[in-house]
Design a protein around this nucleic acid. Sequence first.
DNA 1: GGCAGCATATGATTGAAATCATATTCCAGA
DNA 2: TCTGGAATATGATTTCAATCATATGCTGCC
Lengths: 187, 187
Amino acid sequence: MLPEPYDLLPTTARQSHTIAAGDVLFRQGARTLGLYVLITGRVHLERVGPNGERLIIHRATSGTSFAEASVFSERYHCDAIVMDAGELVRIDKSAVLAAFANPDFARAYGRHAAQQVQAHRQIMGIVGIRRAEDRVMAGIVAGLLDGTVVDFAARLQLTHEATYRALRALVEAGRVTNPSRGTYRLA
Amino acid sequence: MLPEPYDLLPTTARQSHTIAAGDVLFRQGARTLGLYVLITGRVHLERVGPNGERLIIHRATSGTSFAEASVFSERYHCDAIVMDAGELVRIDKSAVLAAFANPDFARAYGRHAAQQVQAHRQIMGIVGIRRAEDRVMAGIVAGLLDGTVVDFAARLQLTHEATYRALRALVEAGRVTNPSRGTYRLA
DNA sequence: GGCAGCATATGATTGAAATCATATTCCAGA
DNA sequence: TCTGGAATATGATTTCAATCATATGCTGCC
């Protein structure tokens, strides 16, 4: 099933596609068709600077949507390139725009978007903390350590080595417990 | 005037307030009244962790809104504390929820939120670049160097010293020009 | 006009995270 | 059951951004 709020859209608005590494979903400047929900695989959004510099705007991961802003725009403003094969759903721009007439969808969309903005702001604040130990502690307090430590480290923009070391230091300082290999909790 | 999309709401939904440093707008766990648009001044959103750790979730600046997600929530999930005196507008939660029945508002809200998410994702990607020189270059390509270098440095989560040095290195490498003191452009 | 404060700018030193290396455990799949 | 890959974990070394320091230009304000 699709993640909120796109599950509220009529099935006619969706198109499933299998994707292979190297596929180009769209190019900067192309007319927008809609947004995408990545089911499995990996997709990079890249923008090419005026002098040919490639800048990765976003790395889409399983279960997340991307190119949401294309719904409100005539042209894509970046390239979407498949890194790992998988599956995705394209959601019609016009269907989304029409769905805003449905207050239930509109509110679900609003809630989802507001929460995402909130989450981003929080992570940005945490990533701004310089000391690895403080950053990791803040990440734990914020509840960001749900999956693997490797994922956690990536979210904190730290190497996993630095993250493991910080976790160890926090455990030794008694601020965090390490009940079992790979699991850490607030003391 | 209020920033989009809140300018579309009836004036009865707004309440202007002057705020003084140290004021508490709301506390974690308090019933939600609505979101805020900061006109002038500075406000910090902080969350207190289970063991009393204070974590700054967000630093709101002039002209931006905060606590948007409170519209969809019964309780505030962080504290809002005024750092510098100023002025703000509180926007009624119920008015926003009701306004989602208006497709124009809903779409404006959606567009605004989608663009914000996009912008956040881009900055997060850039901040993830380790080398200061590459990070600064990416920031310039992304068009983030519009105001002062000090602001630019803060957005990149770099010290301004490191940013100046990186700019200088980029100028020396011929990738960036420095037409006048304090202004930098892509070569 | 003079002073305070800030942005710009750069040099020297330090410290902490990245990098490189290696070992073990765990899990999925052939 | 064996095997390969990923996560966990930690040690050694290096690099590079933070920090500390200092100077100058610019602006607003009293």
